[in-house]
């Protein structure tokens, strides 16, 4: 059994642990549990269902449907039976489990003083399987160094095109010769669990786990003196100020943002591209994440 499957199975409830025993995890990207609807398995070639016997099937009528109690049990199990310890993560709608995998939770929000404080009546769970592909960013890494000087780079892509995977590999590659800090606002890049990065992020990489991006970038520069700062999904209003501070301090920034092209990004976040030298466009080729283009911004 591959280790990814083993780690995930250990964290499921006994019922689902049994059902998933014979499922092939090698190509699996997501597992979706939805209340009173079939459990769905998402691979790069499309979705399928989990049958009552624990096999992959395309026939909906024999698919296993999740009950409310099963979803609650599953969510509690993912939280190690300690909701209070994961409440800060649950407010954002997801938790990171052992192995760096991400569990997104859908349900009813509990709002206190205008802020989400919890999610109840869980109606859906999305287990997003995180994988690392060591070496996948080697081609990008070589293009980021011009005259042995690293460029500030922005990875642009729609969701599910490998932004985080490429960022993780870039951190691993550059940390061989540079001090790298990852500001991991959503525990996705390093997939930290209990303070331990679940992926290989390189020898000289520090992780600021669950730090707000802007605050994390400022803190990293003040206290960790990074050569390279890596962060995911820019876009908040205070990000630009932090980027300004980072680039002024001589630190190189590699970040990602949702979008289809530099024009898209410029339209949605005017001025943001000014902080970067290179834009890397990611997309999907043959249903797999791929580099679609690299363009110089200055």
């Amino acid at each position: 059994m591959d280790s990814c499957k083993e780690i995930i199975l250990q964290q499921l409830t006994p019922l689902y642990r049994r059902l998933f025993q014979s499922v092939d995890f090698s190509q699996l990207e997501e597992i979706r549990f939805r209340i009173k609807r079939p459990v769905m398995l998402y691979r790069h070639d499309g979705p399928s269902f989990l049958s009552e016997n624990g096999e992959k099937t395309s026939i909906e009528s024999i698919a296993k449907a999740s009950s409310s109690a099963e979803l609650n049990d599953l969510a509690t199990t993912f939280c190690s039976g300690s909701i209070y310890a994961y409440l800060n993560d649950l407010k954002d709608g997801f938790i990171t489990i052992c192995g760096g995998h991400r569990v997104g939770i859908a349900g009813k929000s509990v709002i206190k003083n205008g802020e989400i404080t919890n999610i109840t009546d869980i109606s859906g769970i999305n287990l997003r399987i995180a994988r690392e592909f060591p070496g996948c960013a080697r081609e990008i890494a070589s293009q980021l160094c011009i005259d042995s000087c690293l460029q500030n780079a922005l990875l642009i892509s729609p969701p599910q095109c490998g932004k985080t995977t490429f960022l993780r590999d870039l951190a691993r590659l550059f940390s061989a010769t540079n001090k790298v800090v990852i500001v991991d606002e959503r525990s996705e890049i390093a997939g930290s669990f209990g303070g331990v990065p679940q992926f290989d992020i390189g020898m000289q990489t520090d992780v600021l786990d669950r730090f707000p991006k802007a605050a994390g970038m400022l803190l990293a520069i003040r206290s960790l003196s990074p050569d390279i700062l890596i962060t995911d999904e820019l876009g908040a209003t205070d990000d630009e100020e932090a980027l300004q501070y980072a680039t002024n301090s001589g630190c190189r920034v590699i970040a990602s943002i949702h979008g289809n092209s530099p024009e898209d990004v410029e339209c949605a976040h005017p001025g943001l591209l000014n902080f970067f030298d290179i834009a890397i466009l990611l997309g999907r080729k043959n249903n797999r994440p791929a580099v679609m283009g690299i363009c110089k911004l200055r």
């Binding site: 190690s80 300690s82 310890a85 994961y86």
Partner: peptide
């Protein structure tokens, strides 16, 4: 301990 370190119960 719950108040100070928010650790999950098994670890605690």
């Amino acid at each position: 301990e719950i108040t100070f370190c928010l650790e999950p119960l098994p670890q605690l």
